[in-house]
């Protein structure tokens, strides 16, 4: 009976670290980010999202780093949990396609930031 255990070493740790980092970023500043980019900026309470200001932020190397970090980490965090939801609720193993999506989106993000 012990022999039929799946003792295969899990590769989870790599994705779990990304999950944890993204989760911490989202937990600490996620609300502030959504407030700023989704409500305060578009509704005119701040001019930070005006084209000139937004462009200046994304053009700066530090701005690029921040944007890449935030987008990529939240992507990897959310994709990990979404996979868990599908496993828990629908008995579907979607981790791999979700990771492909996250990888593509991460590459796209990096490419876009480099082009700005």
């Amino acid at each position: 009976m012990v022999g039929d255990l799946a003792m295969k070493r899990s590769n989870e740790p790599f994705f779990w670290l990304l999950f944890g980092a993204g989760g911490m970023v989202a937990a600490l500043i996620g609300a502030g980010l959504v407030l700023t980019t989704g409500l305060l900026g578009p509704l005119g309470a701040t001019r930070a999202m005006d084209y000139a200001r937004a462009y200046a932020f994304a053009a700066h190397p530090l701005g690029k780093l921040v944007l890449f970090g935030v987008v990529a980490l939240i992507l990897w965090h959310s994709v990990h949990r979404m996979g868990e939801v599908l496993h828990d609720a629908a008995h579907v193993s979607a981790a791999i396609p979700l990771r492909v999506v996250a990888a593509l989106a991460t590459v796209a993000c990096g490419w876009l930031l480099l082009s700005i």
Binding site: L5, A6, M7, K8, R9, S10, E12
Partner: peptide, 8 residues
């Protein structure tokens, strides 16, 4: 080995 596995 058990701890690191997918069932761990």
């Amino acid at each position: 080995e058990v701890a690191n596995s997918e069932g761990g």
